[in-house]
Design a protein around this nucleic acid. Sequence first.
DNA 1: GTGCAGATCCGA
DNA 2: CGGATCTGCACG
Length: 207
Amino acid sequence: MKGHMLPREFYRQPTLELAQALLGKTLVHETPSGSTAGMIVETEAYIGPGDRAAHSYQNRRTKRTEVMFDVPGKIYTYVMHTHCLLNVVSGQAEVPEAVLIRAVEPLAGVELMEKRRGKGRPVRELTSGPGKLTKAMGITREVYGGVFYERPLYICTGREIPTSEVAAGPRIGIHNTGEAREYPWRYWIRDNTFVSRPRHESKKPVT
DNA sequence: GTGCAGATCCGA
DNA sequence: CGGATCTGCACG
């Protein structure tokens, strides 16, 4: 669709770098009802076992977190209340780290996104949140354990985002987790209107 | 700002 | 079993 599919080697970089490198890339999902694509505009890094906010904190290994211990580039989905959230497994095998994709900017298949999300909704609200984008793109737990470098759910090259356009700040919704709460591991494209919620920015992106 | 849906995990 | 959780939506 847009650009070319990123090879598995792309995912072999430190999690904090991958979380920033994913900004501007194109997420594509092909389904029987049609294809949708969006530019990734917001991510969050989760670095277990030392990260209290991560599912894999203290190497917690369950049926749900199992794929986080697999090789980078794997697809990690989990259900939060009624929503499916999409993560990119990072780090190396046996090191449970991941990047949550929090928001994308619609690039293709907007009509299908509108159909899935319900009519009469502004385009800005179609994919501006981790639960919204999975619903708009038809992503469910079925893709759990798959890889991002093969169809039907994959990531392509997109727009190059200069470092000066990358903003960083504390992650969303993880209060009650001690000092991990303050880690500036949420990244977004500055001034992009599709980020989930405008929030304060830390001094400097950490690499 | 509040309440709630209802998957999954975990501690009691 | 009860309570918490990387959320979104409707509400007044």
